[in-house]
Design a protein around this nucleic acid. Structure first.
Lengths: 211, 211
DNA sequence: CTATAATGCGAGCGATCGCTCGTATTCGCT
DNA sequence: AGCGAATACGAGCGATCGCTCGCATTATAG
Protein backbone atom coordinates (compact mmCIF):
# COMPACT_ATOMS: atom_id res chain seq x y z
CA UNK A 1 0.00 0.00 0.00
CA UNK A 2 2.98 2.22 0.51
CA UNK A 3 3.36 2.64 -3.22
CA UNK A 4 2.97 0.93 -6.53
CA UNK A 5 5.69 -1.49 -7.72
CA UNK A 6 8.47 0.50 -9.32
CA UNK A 7 6.60 2.40 -11.95
CA UNK A 8 5.70 5.18 -9.58
CA UNK A 9 8.37 7.87 -9.40
CA UNK A 10 6.20 10.10 -7.16
CA UNK A 11 7.47 10.02 -3.62
CA UNK A 12 7.20 12.21 -0.54
CA UNK A 13 10.10 14.54 0.14
CA UNK A 14 13.01 13.14 -1.80
CA UNK A 15 15.76 12.49 0.61
CA UNK A 16 19.43 11.96 -0.11
CA UNK A 17 20.64 13.81 -3.12
CA UNK A 18 24.15 13.52 -4.46
CA UNK A 19 25.05 14.29 -0.86
CA UNK A 20 26.84 17.30 -2.30
CA UNK A 21 24.26 19.43 -4.00
CA UNK A 22 21.62 18.54 -1.47
CA UNK A 23 23.70 19.63 1.49
CA UNK A 24 24.48 22.90 -0.20
CA UNK A 25 20.84 23.45 -1.05
CA UNK A 26 19.64 22.70 2.45
CA UNK A 27 22.15 25.16 3.86
CA UNK A 28 21.32 27.78 1.26
CA UNK A 29 17.63 27.50 2.07
CA UNK A 30 18.13 27.87 5.81
CA UNK A 31 20.51 30.76 5.30
CA UNK A 32 18.10 32.46 2.90
CA UNK A 33 15.26 32.03 5.38
CA UNK A 34 17.30 33.58 8.16
CA UNK A 35 18.32 36.51 5.98
CA UNK A 36 14.76 37.21 4.95
CA UNK A 37 13.48 36.95 8.51
CA UNK A 38 16.06 39.51 9.62
CA UNK A 39 15.98 41.88 6.66
CA UNK A 40 12.40 41.72 5.48
CA UNK A 41 10.39 40.29 8.36
CA UNK A 42 8.36 37.15 8.89
CA UNK A 43 5.50 38.16 6.63
CA UNK A 44 7.79 38.49 3.65
CA UNK A 45 9.27 35.06 4.20
CA UNK A 46 7.10 33.31 1.64
CA UNK A 47 8.27 30.05 0.17
CA UNK A 48 8.64 31.66 -3.24
CA UNK A 49 10.79 34.43 -1.83
CA UNK A 50 12.94 32.02 0.17
CA UNK A 51 13.55 29.90 -2.90
CA UNK A 52 14.35 33.00 -4.93
CA UNK A 53 16.89 34.30 -2.42
CA UNK A 54 18.41 30.86 -2.03
CA UNK A 55 18.79 30.69 -5.78
CA UNK A 56 16.68 27.57 -6.23
CA UNK A 57 13.12 26.89 -7.27
CA UNK A 58 10.15 26.34 -5.00
CA UNK A 59 9.92 22.83 -6.28
CA UNK A 60 13.43 22.07 -5.08
CA UNK A 61 12.64 23.67 -1.75
CA UNK A 62 9.85 21.19 -1.20
CA UNK A 63 12.17 18.31 -1.97
CA UNK A 64 14.05 18.96 1.25
CA UNK A 65 11.52 20.61 3.49
CA UNK A 66 7.98 19.31 3.75
CA UNK A 67 6.48 22.70 4.52
CA UNK A 68 7.29 26.27 5.32
CA UNK A 69 7.23 25.74 9.09
CA UNK A 70 9.95 23.13 8.78
CA UNK A 71 12.23 25.74 7.26
CA UNK A 72 11.63 28.26 10.01
CA UNK A 73 12.09 25.49 12.53
CA UNK A 74 15.46 24.67 10.99
CA UNK A 75 16.52 28.29 11.42
CA UNK A 76 15.37 28.25 15.02
CA UNK A 77 17.17 25.01 15.77
CA UNK A 78 20.38 26.20 14.19
CA UNK A 79 20.32 29.44 16.16
CA UNK A 80 19.53 27.64 19.40
CA UNK A 81 22.32 25.16 18.85
CA UNK A 82 24.77 28.01 18.42
CA UNK A 83 23.64 29.56 21.67
CA UNK A 84 23.52 26.34 23.64
CA UNK A 85 26.99 25.43 22.48
CA UNK A 86 28.35 28.59 24.08
CA UNK A 87 26.29 28.03 27.20
CA UNK A 88 27.37 24.41 27.62
CA UNK A 89 31.02 25.29 27.32
CA UNK A 90 30.65 28.08 29.85
CA UNK A 91 28.89 25.85 32.37
CA UNK A 92 31.65 23.27 32.06
CA UNK A 93 34.24 25.95 32.69
CA UNK A 94 32.66 27.31 35.85
CA UNK A 95 31.58 24.01 37.34
CA UNK A 96 34.28 24.07 40.01
CA UNK A 97 34.43 27.81 40.56
CA UNK A 98 32.90 29.62 43.53
CA UNK A 99 29.51 31.24 43.20
CA UNK A 100 30.46 34.83 42.54
CA UNK A 101 32.82 34.32 39.58
CA UNK A 102 30.67 31.50 38.26
CA UNK A 103 27.55 33.62 38.20
CA UNK A 104 29.47 36.50 36.70
CA UNK A 105 30.67 34.29 33.89
CA UNK A 106 27.18 32.92 33.23
CA UNK A 107 25.72 36.40 33.09
CA UNK A 108 28.39 37.50 30.64
CA UNK A 109 27.73 34.43 28.53
CA UNK A 110 24.00 35.08 28.50
CA UNK A 111 24.66 38.53 27.12
CA UNK A 112 27.19 37.23 24.60
CA UNK A 113 24.70 34.62 23.47
CA UNK A 114 22.06 37.25 22.84
CA UNK A 115 24.56 39.26 20.85
CA UNK A 116 25.40 36.43 18.45
CA UNK A 117 22.71 37.66 16.09
CA UNK A 118 20.40 40.01 17.97
CA UNK A 119 18.08 40.77 15.10
CA UNK A 120 17.59 37.14 14.23
CA UNK A 121 17.12 36.36 17.90
CA UNK A 122 14.47 39.04 18.12
CA UNK A 123 12.53 37.85 15.11
CA UNK A 124 12.71 34.25 16.26
CA UNK A 125 11.62 35.13 19.78
CA UNK A 126 8.62 36.84 18.30
CA UNK A 127 7.75 34.15 15.82
CA UNK A 128 8.58 30.93 17.61
CA UNK A 129 5.08 30.51 18.98
CA UNK A 130 3.72 30.36 15.44
CA UNK A 131 5.89 27.44 14.52
CA UNK A 132 5.67 24.02 16.07
CA UNK A 133 9.11 24.58 17.55
CA UNK A 134 7.98 25.83 20.92
CA UNK A 135 8.74 22.41 22.36
CA UNK A 136 12.28 22.45 21.03
CA UNK A 137 12.89 25.86 22.50
CA UNK A 138 11.50 24.83 25.85
CA UNK A 139 13.75 21.79 25.75
CA UNK A 140 16.75 24.09 25.49
CA UNK A 141 15.31 26.13 28.29
CA UNK A 142 14.99 23.08 30.47
CA UNK A 143 18.56 22.14 29.67
CA UNK A 144 19.74 25.56 30.84
CA UNK A 145 17.71 25.23 34.02
CA UNK A 146 19.07 21.76 34.62
CA UNK A 147 22.67 22.89 34.17
CA UNK A 148 22.18 25.77 36.56
CA UNK A 149 20.51 23.50 39.05
CA UNK A 150 23.36 21.03 38.83
CA UNK A 151 25.82 23.81 39.56
CA UNK A 152 23.80 24.91 42.59
CA UNK A 153 23.56 21.35 43.86
CA UNK A 154 27.29 20.87 43.86
CA UNK A 155 27.86 24.22 45.54
CA UNK A 156 25.07 24.10 48.05
CA UNK A 157 27.46 24.75 50.93
CA UNK A 158 28.20 28.18 49.48
CA UNK A 159 24.58 29.29 49.27
CA UNK A 160 21.63 29.51 51.61
CA UNK A 161 19.19 26.65 51.96
CA UNK A 162 16.76 26.80 49.06
CA UNK A 163 15.04 24.44 46.68
CA UNK A 164 17.53 24.16 43.80
CA UNK A 165 14.81 23.89 41.16
CA UNK A 166 13.18 27.06 42.42
CA UNK A 167 16.49 28.89 42.67
CA UNK A 168 17.40 27.82 39.14
CA UNK A 169 14.06 29.10 37.88
CA UNK A 170 14.53 32.46 39.59
CA UNK A 171 18.12 32.90 38.41
CA UNK A 172 17.83 31.67 34.85
CA UNK A 173 14.62 33.59 34.23
CA UNK A 174 16.06 36.83 35.61
CA UNK A 175 19.38 36.55 33.83
CA UNK A 176 17.76 35.69 30.55
CA UNK A 177 15.25 38.53 30.79
CA UNK A 178 17.86 41.12 31.70
CA UNK A 179 20.18 40.06 28.90
CA UNK A 180 17.34 39.80 26.42
CA UNK A 181 15.82 43.16 27.27
CA UNK A 182 19.12 45.00 27.42
CA UNK A 183 20.36 43.64 24.12
CA UNK A 184 17.12 43.87 22.16
CA UNK A 185 15.35 46.95 23.45
CA UNK A 186 18.38 49.20 23.36
CA UNK A 187 20.36 50.97 20.67
CA UNK A 188 21.59 48.29 18.30
CA UNK A 189 24.87 47.71 20.09
CA UNK A 190 25.44 48.72 23.66
CA UNK A 191 28.87 49.95 24.64
CA UNK A 192 31.40 47.80 26.46
CA UNK A 193 30.94 50.10 29.42
CA UNK A 194 27.21 49.44 29.53
CA UNK A 195 27.79 45.73 29.22
CA UNK A 196 30.20 45.79 32.13
CA UNK A 197 27.70 47.66 34.29
CA UNK A 198 24.96 45.25 33.32
CA UNK A 199 27.12 42.25 34.19
CA UNK A 200 28.08 43.80 37.54
CA UNK A 201 24.52 44.58 38.52
CA UNK A 202 23.04 41.30 37.38
CA UNK A 203 25.75 39.37 39.18
CA UNK A 204 25.02 41.35 42.33
CA UNK A 205 21.31 40.64 41.97
CA UNK A 206 21.81 36.90 41.59
CA UNK A 207 24.63 36.37 44.09
CA UNK A 208 22.79 38.43 46.70
CA UNK A 209 19.76 36.24 46.17
CA UNK A 210 21.68 32.99 46.49
CA UNK A 211 23.63 33.93 49.59
CA UNK B 1 -11.66 71.51 4.89
CA UNK B 2 -13.12 68.65 6.81
CA UNK B 3 -15.07 67.52 3.78
CA UNK B 4 -16.63 68.70 0.59
CA UNK B 5 -19.99 70.48 0.77
CA UNK B 6 -22.61 67.78 1.01
CA UNK B 7 -22.37 66.10 -2.33
CA UNK B 8 -19.58 63.76 -1.33
CA UNK B 9 -20.79 60.82 0.73
CA UNK B 10 -17.43 58.96 0.48
CA UNK B 11 -15.33 59.65 3.52
CA UNK B 12 -12.65 57.82 5.46
CA UNK B 13 -13.84 55.87 8.46
CA UNK B 14 -17.27 57.16 9.35
CA UNK B 15 -17.07 58.45 12.83
CA UNK B 16 -19.96 59.22 15.14
CA UNK B 17 -22.94 57.02 14.59
CA UNK B 18 -26.07 57.25 16.64
CA UNK B 19 -23.62 57.20 19.52
CA UNK B 20 -25.54 54.15 20.69
CA UNK B 21 -25.23 51.53 18.03
CA UNK B 22 -21.76 52.62 17.09
CA UNK B 23 -20.42 52.32 20.62
CA UNK B 24 -21.93 48.88 20.91
CA UNK B 25 -20.50 47.84 17.57
CA UNK B 26 -17.03 49.10 18.40
CA UNK B 27 -17.08 47.18 21.67
CA UNK B 28 -18.47 44.08 20.04
CA UNK B 29 -15.71 44.15 17.44
CA UNK B 30 -12.94 44.52 19.99
CA UNK B 31 -14.45 41.82 22.16
CA UNK B 32 -14.85 39.49 19.19
CA UNK B 33 -11.25 40.09 18.18
CA UNK B 34 -10.02 39.29 21.68
CA UNK B 35 -12.10 36.11 21.82
CA UNK B 36 -10.82 34.89 18.49
CA UNK B 37 -7.22 35.67 19.39
CA UNK B 38 -7.57 33.61 22.56
CA UNK B 39 -9.70 30.75 21.29
CA UNK B 40 -8.59 30.35 17.69
CA UNK B 41 -5.24 32.08 17.42
CA UNK B 42 -3.92 35.05 15.49
CA UNK B 43 -4.01 33.37 12.11
CA UNK B 44 -7.74 32.74 12.37
CA UNK B 45 -8.45 36.34 13.23
CA UNK B 46 -9.45 37.38 9.72
CA UNK B 47 -11.65 40.39 9.26
CA UNK B 48 -14.45 38.22 7.95
CA UNK B 49 -14.27 35.99 11.00
CA UNK B 50 -14.13 38.92 13.40
CA UNK B 51 -17.17 40.48 11.80
CA UNK B 52 -18.99 37.16 11.91
CA UNK B 53 -18.29 36.60 15.60
CA UNK B 54 -19.18 40.19 16.41
CA UNK B 55 -22.47 39.69 14.61
CA UNK B 56 -21.89 42.45 12.08
CA UNK B 57 -20.74 42.60 8.49
CA UNK B 58 -17.24 43.25 7.23
CA UNK B 59 -18.50 46.44 5.70
CA UNK B 60 -19.61 47.73 9.06
CA UNK B 61 -16.29 46.72 10.58
CA UNK B 62 -14.48 48.98 8.15
CA UNK B 63 -16.69 51.89 9.07
CA UNK B 64 -15.11 51.99 12.52
CA UNK B 65 -11.68 50.54 12.00
CA UNK B 66 -9.55 51.51 9.04
CA UNK B 67 -7.73 48.20 8.88
CA UNK B 68 -7.21 44.93 10.65
CA UNK B 69 -4.17 46.15 12.59
CA UNK B 70 -6.25 48.90 14.14
CA UNK B 71 -8.55 46.29 15.62
CA UNK B 72 -5.73 44.26 17.12
CA UNK B 73 -4.20 47.48 18.39
CA UNK B 74 -7.49 48.32 20.11
CA UNK B 75 -7.42 44.96 21.87
CA UNK B 76 -3.83 45.54 22.95
CA UNK B 77 -4.56 49.03 24.22
CA UNK B 78 -7.60 47.88 26.15
CA UNK B 79 -5.67 45.06 27.80
CA UNK B 80 -2.76 47.33 28.66
CA UNK B 81 -5.05 49.93 30.12
CA UNK B 82 -6.57 47.31 32.40
CA UNK B 83 -3.14 46.25 33.60
CA UNK B 84 -1.77 49.76 34.01
CA UNK B 85 -4.84 50.77 35.99
CA UNK B 86 -4.06 48.09 38.55
CA UNK B 87 -0.38 49.00 38.57
CA UNK B 88 -0.99 52.73 39.02
CA UNK B 89 -3.30 52.16 41.95
CA UNK B 90 -0.79 49.84 43.60
CA UNK B 91 2.07 52.32 43.19
CA UNK B 92 -0.03 55.04 44.77
CA UNK B 93 -0.79 52.77 47.71
CA UNK B 94 2.80 51.85 48.46
CA UNK B 95 4.34 55.27 47.84
CA UNK B 96 4.91 55.93 51.52
CA UNK B 97 5.62 52.39 52.63
CA UNK B 98 9.09 51.02 53.39
CA UNK B 99 10.94 49.04 50.76
CA UNK B 100 10.19 45.48 51.81
CA UNK B 101 6.38 45.67 51.95
CA UNK B 102 6.30 48.01 48.97
CA UNK B 103 8.28 45.62 46.77
CA UNK B 104 6.22 42.70 48.03
CA UNK B 105 3.05 44.48 47.01
CA UNK B 106 4.41 45.37 43.57
CA UNK B 107 5.47 41.81 42.94
CA UNK B 108 2.04 40.55 43.92
CA UNK B 109 0.43 43.11 41.64
CA UNK B 110 2.65 42.12 38.74
CA UNK B 111 1.46 38.55 39.12
CA UNK B 112 -2.17 39.61 39.49
CA UNK B 113 -1.86 41.74 36.39
CA UNK B 114 -0.59 38.81 34.37
CA UNK B 115 -3.46 36.71 35.64
CA UNK B 116 -6.15 39.13 34.46
CA UNK B 117 -6.38 37.23 31.19
CA UNK B 118 -3.29 35.05 30.81
CA UNK B 119 -4.19 33.56 27.48
CA UNK B 120 -4.94 36.92 25.92
CA UNK B 121 -1.77 38.28 27.46
CA UNK B 122 0.19 35.47 25.93
CA UNK B 123 -1.23 35.89 22.45
CA UNK B 124 -0.74 39.64 22.58
CA UNK B 125 2.81 39.31 23.84
CA UNK B 126 3.52 37.11 20.86
CA UNK B 127 1.76 39.23 18.30
CA UNK B 128 2.46 42.77 19.41
CA UNK B 129 5.56 43.07 17.25
CA UNK B 130 3.49 42.44 14.14
CA UNK B 131 1.20 45.34 14.86
CA UNK B 132 2.30 48.93 14.95
CA UNK B 133 1.56 48.98 18.66
CA UNK B 134 5.05 48.26 19.88
CA UNK B 135 5.45 51.95 20.67
CA UNK B 136 2.30 52.00 22.78
CA UNK B 137 3.44 48.99 24.74
CA UNK B 138 6.86 50.48 25.31
CA UNK B 139 5.20 53.65 26.50
CA UNK B 140 3.44 51.65 29.21
CA UNK B 141 6.73 50.02 29.99
CA UNK B 142 8.40 53.37 30.41
CA UNK B 143 5.58 54.48 32.67
CA UNK B 144 6.15 51.46 34.90
CA UNK B 145 9.87 52.16 34.99
CA UNK B 146 9.22 55.82 35.81
CA UNK B 147 6.88 54.95 38.67
CA UNK B 148 9.38 52.51 40.13
CA UNK B 149 12.15 55.03 39.78
CA UNK B 150 10.06 57.68 41.50
CA UNK B 151 9.49 55.33 44.40
CA UNK B 152 13.21 54.60 44.67
CA UNK B 153 14.04 58.30 44.56
CA UNK B 154 11.80 59.11 47.49
CA UNK B 155 13.15 56.16 49.49
CA UNK B 156 16.81 56.49 48.63
CA UNK B 157 17.77 56.60 52.29
CA UNK B 158 16.51 53.03 52.70
CA UNK B 159 18.55 51.59 49.84
CA UNK B 160 22.18 51.51 48.82
CA UNK B 161 23.62 54.15 46.52
CA UNK B 162 22.70 53.26 42.97
CA UNK B 163 21.57 54.97 39.82
CA UNK B 164 17.77 54.96 40.16
CA UNK B 165 17.18 54.49 36.44
CA UNK B 166 19.45 51.45 36.39
CA UNK B 167 17.89 50.03 39.53
CA UNK B 168 14.42 50.52 38.09
CA UNK B 169 15.45 48.73 34.91
CA UNK B 170 16.87 45.80 36.84
CA UNK B 171 13.89 45.48 39.18
CA UNK B 172 11.05 46.02 36.72
CA UNK B 173 12.59 43.74 34.11
CA UNK B 174 13.17 40.95 36.62
CA UNK B 175 9.77 41.21 38.27
CA UNK B 176 7.98 41.31 34.96
CA UNK B 177 9.90 38.34 33.57
CA UNK B 178 9.36 36.20 36.66
CA UNK B 179 5.66 36.96 36.78
CA UNK B 180 5.27 36.49 33.03
CA UNK B 181 7.16 33.22 32.89
CA UNK B 182 5.53 31.76 35.98
CA UNK B 183 2.01 32.61 34.88
CA UNK B 184 2.35 31.72 31.20
CA UNK B 185 4.71 28.77 31.07
CA UNK B 186 3.12 26.84 33.89
CA UNK B 187 -0.02 24.79 34.30
CA UNK B 188 -2.88 27.08 33.43
CA UNK B 189 -3.47 28.29 36.97
CA UNK B 190 -0.80 28.03 39.61
CA UNK B 191 -1.91 27.32 43.15
CA UNK B 192 -2.11 29.99 45.85
CA UNK B 193 0.75 28.25 47.56
CA UNK B 194 2.94 28.53 44.51
CA UNK B 195 2.03 32.17 44.12
CA UNK B 196 2.97 32.86 47.72
CA UNK B 197 6.34 31.19 47.24
CA UNK B 198 6.94 33.12 44.04
CA UNK B 199 6.10 36.41 45.75
CA UNK B 200 8.38 35.58 48.68
CA UNK B 201 11.32 34.66 46.50
CA UNK B 202 10.95 37.53 44.07
CA UNK B 203 10.66 39.99 46.94
CA UNK B 204 13.79 38.57 48.45
CA UNK B 205 15.62 38.84 45.13
CA UNK B 206 14.66 42.49 44.65
CA UNK B 207 14.99 43.72 48.23
CA UNK B 208 18.35 42.00 48.58
CA UNK B 209 19.49 43.78 45.45
CA UNK B 210 18.33 47.18 46.61
CA UNK B 211 19.80 47.00 50.09
C1' DC C 1 26.42 6.25 -26.21
C1' DT C 2 22.00 5.01 -24.44
C1' DA C 3 18.70 4.08 -20.96
C1' DT C 4 17.04 4.99 -16.59
C1' DA C 5 16.76 7.13 -12.34
C1' DA C 6 17.54 11.18 -9.58
C1' DT C 7 17.07 15.83 -9.13
C1' DG C 8 15.78 20.69 -10.44
C1' DC C 9 12.44 23.56 -12.23
C1' DG C 10 8.50 27.09 -12.21
C1' DA C 11 3.73 27.99 -14.08
C1' DG C 12 -0.11 27.80 -11.92
C1' DC C 13 -4.02 25.67 -8.71
C1' DG C 14 -7.09 26.32 -5.08
C1' DA C 15 -7.65 28.66 -0.89
C1' DT C 16 -7.68 32.61 1.77
C1' DC C 17 -6.81 37.20 2.84
C1' DG C 18 -7.82 42.34 3.56
C1' DC C 19 -10.76 45.33 1.88
C1' DT C 20 -14.39 47.93 -1.49
C1' DC C 21 -18.60 49.45 -3.13
C1' DG C 22 -23.34 49.25 -4.85
C1' DT C 23 -27.49 48.15 -2.54
C1' DA C 24 -30.76 47.50 1.41
C1' DT C 25 -32.25 49.01 5.73
C1' DT C 26 -33.00 52.20 9.48
C1' DC C 27 -32.95 56.82 11.57
C1' DG C 28 -34.18 61.62 12.20
C1' DC C 29 -36.98 65.05 10.94
C1' DT C 30 -41.02 67.45 9.27
C1' DA D 1 -46.44 59.26 6.37
C1' DG D 2 -42.77 60.46 3.57
C1' DC D 3 -38.08 61.59 2.39
C1' DG D 4 -33.13 62.26 2.46
C1' DA D 5 -29.13 61.03 5.17
C1' DA D 6 -26.83 57.77 7.91
C1' DT D 7 -25.70 53.28 8.61
C1' DA D 8 -25.42 48.23 7.72
C1' DC D 9 -24.75 44.79 4.62
C1' DG D 10 -22.11 41.02 2.08
C1' DA D 11 -20.82 39.36 -2.66
C1' DG D 12 -16.86 39.58 -4.62
C1' DC D 13 -12.19 41.82 -6.39
C1' DG D 14 -7.39 41.57 -6.72
C1' DA D 15 -3.46 40.01 -4.42
C1' DT D 16 -0.89 36.60 -2.21
C1' DC D 17 -0.06 32.40 -0.06
C1' DG D 18 1.63 27.46 0.44
C1' DC D 19 2.22 23.93 -2.31
C1' DT D 20 1.83 20.45 -6.61
C1' DC D 21 3.01 18.23 -10.75
C1' DG D 22 4.46 17.48 -15.40
C1' DC D 23 8.50 18.40 -17.76
C1' DA D 24 13.63 19.59 -18.35
C1' DT D 25 18.13 18.69 -16.91
C1' DT D 26 21.83 16.08 -14.92
C1' DA D 27 24.07 11.98 -12.87
C1' DT D 28 24.87 7.04 -13.04
C1' DA D 29 25.11 2.33 -14.88
C1' DG D 30 25.79 -0.91 -18.44
Amino acid sequence: MARKPATNPRTKPRKNASQQRSRAMVDALVEATARILVREGFDKASTNRIAEVAGVSVGSLYQYYPCKEALVAAVIDRHNQEIMQVVRVAFAEVATQPVEPAVRRMVAVAIEAHRIDPRLHRVLAEQIPRTGRLEHVEAFNREAHAMFRTYLDSHRDEIRAIDPALAAFMCVTSIEALAHTAVLHRPETLSDREVRTLVDETTRLIVGYLQ
